[in-house]
């Protein structure tokens, strides 16, 4: 066990865990930040996506000891009132079905738009390919990412 001070959603929080513990389980079990989802545990489905700095990372493959002083943002911290352009676009397009994968989808999409504010269709597909949606909401996801891109540009 070891103590770590983590910057999560803007707050410094301490946790005492096995250094190999993936951030996914630190967030879910120790901080009750359960918006970040467990889907596969091997970085193949994207349900656990969070931001490490500005990058979308799979938290199931990110040991707590590798975080250091980098800021972690989870779906709960993406915006204050759920009004990030990507979240708003998701509501406008009414994307979710079961909803389980959507936090991961939104975290991947918001990281994409930060780096590439007006992605092409192919760039969206490529960026979103690591996030599985078993309900099959991909066409709506793509529409929402495009809408968020337009909204970001206009704001």
């Amino acid at each position: 066990m070891a103590k770590f001070n983590l910057k999560i959603n803007g707050n410094i929080q301490e946790v005492d865990v096995d250094p190999n513990t993936p951030m996914l389980w630190v967030l879910r079990d120790h901080f009750q930040l359960v918006g970040t989802k467990y889907g596969c545990g091997i970085a193949q489905c994207g349900a656990c996506t969070v931001h490490l700095g500005d990058n979308a990372v799979r938290s199931c493959q990110l040991p707590v000891s590798a975080v250091g002083d980098k800021a972690i943002t989870t779906i709960e911290g993406l915006s204050e009132n759920g009004d990030h352009p990507v979240q708003k676009a998701w509501l406008e397009v009414d994307v979710p079905q079961c909803g389980y994968c959507q936090a991961g989808q939104i975290m991947t999409a918001s990281a994409l738009l930060k780096k590439n504010p007006s992605p092409s269709d192919a760039e969206i597909e490529s960026a979103m390919d690591g996030n599985i949606c078993r309900c099959g909401t991909y066409t709506r996801i793509k529409k929402a990412v495009k809408l968020a891109a337009v909204e970001t540009e206009n704001s």
Partner: peptide, 17 residues
């Protein structure tokens, strides 16, 4: 619109998991 969409896109606890 889906009444649960806001909770879904903000990561509220809602699933058995």
């Amino acid at each position: 619109k889906n009444i649960d969409a806001k909770d879904i896109v903000t990561g509220k606890p809602m699933f058995g998991m």
